[in-house]
């Protein structure tokens, strides 16, 4: 048996000790990292999906690792129960109302559990507690929503393209927009309306003068008041006149507003080729109507004046002349 130097044994011992010590320290550190050796607290949480969580994944509170996933088991077809080991040190900071969510460490990193504190006071968590959970915003869900949005966007742009196509193809809109006659006509009819109201004004002043004469009770007006049939006919005519002028004023007001706001029926009218023509026709009719009305008022004025003349000059034939004037006014 050869004699081996004792120093060889010392070196060998050192060599082995260092190697084994490194292994033991490594295993101890890993164990502490995974909470194998320290006393830990087991809490649970139920999820619908754990998104690939594995036993040993980290549990974080406020971004700090505070424990690891100890066990994952399926409770039923929609529930997965995850048991977590939490360090005893963090027990005071995890409240019973904390919410557990599944997350990932970075975009492509490990799946982890995040514990998020909820507002409101609650006692510290105890062993065996089941924490509330929140469905996480998974990348898949985000992508799903994005898909729907995209499909909607496709529909919207499709519709937009159709509208612009129609607008480009429609001649009536462009005609209407390009028609220089229209505003002139409108302006023209407005001027006619103005003259018509001026005449109305004059007519009503005449009526005023007439009623004054009546009040004095002299002349033909006195007689007029005695004749009840004539009075009723005159009231009727005056009422009709007022109604006509009211309608006209309303029509003009509406027309003005429509021109100013371009809202309401005008939009729907834009696509109607026939309407453009009708509109112009109508404006012309209105024009003519008001002109005719103006002439009628003129004639009425003359009628009254003539009749006043006749009264003063032919006193004896008053009733016959009055009947003739009443007929002519009624015909109006």
């Amino acid at each position: 048996m050869p004699q081996r130097a004792a120093s060889n044994h010392v070196r060998l011992g050192l060599f082995v000790l260092v190697g084994v010590a490194i292994l033991l320290v490594t295993l101890f550190l890993l164990g502490r990292q995974q909470n194998l050796f320290s006393r830990s607290l087991v809490v649970q949480a139920d999820f619908r999906s754990v998104s690939g969580l594995l036993t040993g994944n980290n549990v974080r509170l406020g971004g700090i690792p505070v424990g690891t996933v100890r066990k994952i088991q399926i409770l039923n077809d929609t529930t997965v129960r995850v048991a977590m080991n939490l360090n005893r040190d963090v027990q005071p900071f995890v409240r019973k109302n904390a919410v557990a969510t599944i997350g990932t460490d970075g975009l492509v990193g490990n799946t982890i559990i995040n514990l998020v504190a909820s507002p409101g006071p609650a006692p510290a968590v105890q062993a065996g507690d089941v924490l509330r959970t929140k469905v996480p915003v998974g990348i898949e869900a985000i992508l799903g929503t994005l898909d729907i949005s995209n499909r909607n966007l496709v529909g919207i742009t499709h519709n937009l393209r159709e509208i612009t196509g129609k607008l480009n193809g429609s001649t009536s809109v462009w005609q209407l927009l390009n028609d220089e006659q229209l505003p002139i006509n409108v302006r023209h009819s407005l001027r006619n309306v103005e003259t018509a109201t001026a005449h109305l004004d004059a007519a009503s002043r005449d009526v005023l003068a007439l009623t004054r004469g009546v009040r004095r009770g002299k002349g033909p007006a006195g007689y007029l008041f005695t004749d009840t049939a004539f009075g009723g006919r005159l009231g009727h005519a005056a009422r009709q006149l007022a109604g006509t002028s009211d309608t006209l004023a309303a029509t003009i007001g509406t027309l003005k507003q429509q021109l100013r706001t371009e809202a309401g029926p005008l939009n729907t009218l834009l696509v109607d080729t026939a309407f453009g023509r009708n509109m112009r026709q109508t404006m012309q009719n209105v024009n003519e109507g008001t002109r005719g009305f103006s002439q009628n008022m003129e004639a009425l004025k003359h009628n009254f004046l003539l009749r006043g003349y006749f009264r003063r000059q032919q006193k004896k034939q008053a009733r016959a002349a009055l009947e003739q004037g009443g007929d002519s006014s009624a015909a109006r």
């Binding site: 050869p2 081996r4 044994h9 060599f15």
Partner: peptide, 15 residues
């Protein structure tokens, strides 16, 4: 003894 010697040769001297 021979085992320890071999450990020394095989292990330590290979380091």
């Amino acid at each position: 003894a021979e085992f320890l010697h071999q450990c020394y040769v095989v292990g330590y001297q290979s380091l």
